[in-house]
Design a protein around this nucleic acid. Sequence first.
DNA 1: GCAAATGCGGACCATGGGTCCGCTTCTTGC
DNA 2: GCAAGAAGCGGACCCATGGTCCGCATTTGC
Lengths: 207, 207
Amino acid sequence: MAERKPRKDAVRNRAALLAAADDLFARCANPEDVTMADVAAAAGVGKASLFRAFGDRTSLIRELYEARLAPIERAVTEGPAPLGPAAPAPVRVPALLDALLAFKLDNRHLALALEATGSDSPYRTDHYDRWHRLLREVLEQVPGVDDGDFTAHALLAAVRADLVEYLAGDRGLGGDELRARLAAFTARVLGAAGADSASAKAPAGRA
Amino acid sequence: MAERKPRKDAVRNRAALLAAADDLFARCANPEDVTMADVAAAAGVGKASLFRAFGDRTSLIRELYEARLAPIERAVTEGPAPLGPAAPAPVRVPALLDALLAFKLDNRHLALALEATGSDSPYRTDHYDRWHRLLREVLEQVPGVDDGDFTAHALLAAVRADLVEYLAGDRGLGGDELRARLAAFTARVLGAAGADSASAKAPAGRA
DNA sequence: GCAAATGCGGACCATGGGTCCGCTTCTTGC
DNA sequence: GCAAGAAGCGGACCCATGGTCCGCATTTGC
């Protein structure tokens, strides 16, 4: 039971690997051309240490992603309105989606890397599950929304990393404009009433 | 200019390869484990012939996909309402999306293979472009829809192959139920008015 | 300080997309 | 029908990349 504490060179290497990987993914446009050997080399470490520390490529990327996302998840679960649980549902839904979009804009490469990890579906991950569940629950409190489950899937699909990358990268849409469009769309889905107020306030604070 | 007509063994091989690939992709749940060597072997042909005929994996899959999709595109461009150009926009939009969803349900593996072709984004393809442009144009004729461009992206995102696969495959949703949910969502996006009529009529004829 | 456990690293393996090249088969002009 | 040359064939081969192995070095508990 009582696990011996890990060796200090191991923890140092792990940190170095995380930093190196984070840097490499941030630097390269296409996540595919960040190879595991590259990461190991950049951290000044053998490949085996990389795989020992993280298991496989997918897990490494996931760990990086979760680390970056953590502050937002904290803001969502225990922060103030409009992201936190205190916010009324019709306000919180667009806030959640906007936060997710802003996050993906700021972490394009990483988000892309996570969703593009070849074989395994981006849907079969508990990360997606968490967000879907949350969004569904909030949606179900919005009067007039009857299928929170599918609506949550559809709204989340609108902020998928590769779509964001396509719109903001290839098509050169500005981040704020994209956020405004998403806000308008969200408002429309929630019921045409609050469209203006929601779309006007979305592109506000951001890292 | 005047290209000499291709040799008949080449034509035969090409057909055999298409058939074999189609079959293999249909049979295997995960497109990743249909290898190019498999396809060549199944067609009783050398690997080089496969690559000579199609260039690379992506092109092969695209060709299969387009072949299957052709009838629907024809119905869309020159068929009768509700899919064809004669249909009024508020009817045609849900019809288009429903057709797309039904198609992906019927061709899960292929659609999945196409979108999961690793590195290159599913958005940077003229196939996506065609559908997006069409949907945008029709959306812009729907009174009250102001951002046809983003709305088209968002609606198309709701019928992406991996989401469909997740909902219909992993989560065991029936095809008709999924179509009904999409119809309801679409109606909601188009404006709450026509929601009932649209969702009631969607799951009708299908291959 | 010593021994055992833990971790290190780079050579090594497996897999799969894609290419090369000597041989075969088809087409074409007669 | 036949020769000549083009077009096509196939499977051995190449190479990149994720992932593993094992002899050696470092650390830790005592």
